[in-house]
Design a protein around this nucleic acid. Structure first.
Lengths: 228, 228
DNA sequence: ATGCAATGTTTACCCTGTCTACATAGGGAC
DNA sequence: GTCCCTATGTAGACAGGGTAAACATTGCAT
């Protein structure tokens, strides 16, 4: 078994072509997840087929059933990977941002949108209509975590008198709706003609979160929009 | 041919059971669209099957191909019906709202969210990942129309000095993102535990659009939040 | 009435999800 | 090292679905 264990989303991690004809794959489960993501990305959602996924992983069409109960379980694995990566990217960007709660909030929002733009298949699976039963993410790094990130930021902002008062959950929902809506419009190609490329998307996300945050700012607070 | 032509989304329009055994259906095309929507609503997206749709419409599994090139074409028809209904519902609610641009904007946003909550299958198809080629809605009542509704509202608000200055397209995108995000979170059952029922959803949409609009209000303008 | 175009039916093909029985490999007990 | 158990991959089968081709029926225009 390879020592590389914590796979990251960014590097597809080439197989070493030496050990090609082995009966056991080594890490078929992750290979299947990767193949599914690549397939969605290249051919679209309708082309996502367990058999084609298996084909790309170099195994027979029934092999995936050793690792996933059914097609939906594979999608759940993709979604879980997405939730983990998203919350990690949000935390990373928040860590490099300035320390003010408003800047942190802005960083979280931009990271949310950027995750969607960079990983559309994951985002689509995470929030798409593919699961009949509500996706249960009880892990410490799940979606709830990303949401709680926002809640805490907004709570801090209110405590510091930088954000307008009111139910912090309502403000958080506002922020979440904005970034989720923007991300969805990107991913579902509703904004294609307006924005091209990562930089443009990032700039737009920046503008939007700034707009929102200055909108939600406490009327009495001075504008400390220092991240530009 | 029946005289009823402009079908509405709200009344499923029972078939008259007298003319049951006719070879020609009468309005199979619309019946197929209705059946598809009902099927998605009842059994979920994965259960959407051309054959089951045909079954529900009382025809053989190949009959739909006389009206739709393929499954995707049927979904396009569902989406088109959704865009038409959505923009109509937005216009209706805006018409009954007070005349101020801000109230109109709020009405449009609430109508957007309410459409999604009331017609989840349509909303999902309209914005879901089901189309490979970008959906082309060139009709006067398409999505562009709904978007332009927002743009005009915001332009009026700016002209009246009620909304902060800046690129009206940016402000419109903010508003659209917020309501689209909120609607998506509703439809994708991300907010199920928080909100139950139409009234709660409407109240939440109202709160959110108010939050956004007061946020985007011109700093110098007095708060004329008269719709409460 | 008659013939054509529109609409529904039958049949057939290949692909997909999934189940079952079988094959192989790798690791621990001895 | 040998034996055996379990994890993992393979082969084959079956039902259901998308879609194309050929056929049947109807309504309408002439």
């Amino acid at each position: 078994m390879a020592t590389r264990s914590k796979r990251t989303l960014k590097e597809p991690a080439k197989e070493t072509p030496v050990e090609k004809a082995r009966y056991h794959h080594g890490d078929l489960r992750q290979a299947l997840v990767d193949a599914a993501v690549a397939l969605i990305s290249e051919e679209g959602f309708n082309a996502l087929t367990l058999r084609e996924v298996a084909r790309r992983a170099g195994v027979t069409h029934a092999a995936p059933y050793r690792h996933f109960a059914d097609k939906e379980a594979l999608l759940e694995a993709v979604a879980l990977e997405g939730f983990r990566t998203m919350s990690r990217e949000m935390r990373e960007r928040m860590a490099t941002a300035a320390q003010g709660p408003l800047d942190q909030l802005c960083a979280a929002g931009v990271a949310y949108v950027l995750f969607a733009v960079r990983h559309p298949p994951h985002f689509r699976v995470m929030f798409g209509p593919h699961f009949n039963h509500r996706l249960q993410i009880d892990e410490p790094e799940g979606e709830a975590n990303a949401f709680e990130l926002l809640v805490r930021c907004i709570g801090s902002g209110q405590a510091a008198g930088l954000l307008r008062d009111g139910d912090p959950r309502a403000l958080t929902l506002t922020a979440w709706s904005l970034v989720h809506g923007l991300a969805s419009l990107f991913v579902d190609r509703q904004l294609e003609e307006a924005v091209q490329g990562l930089e443009a998307a990032e700039a737009l996300a920046q503008v939007q979160t700034h707009l929102l945050i200055t909108g939600l700012a406490h009327p009495g607070a001075g504008g400390n929009s220092d991240s530009r």
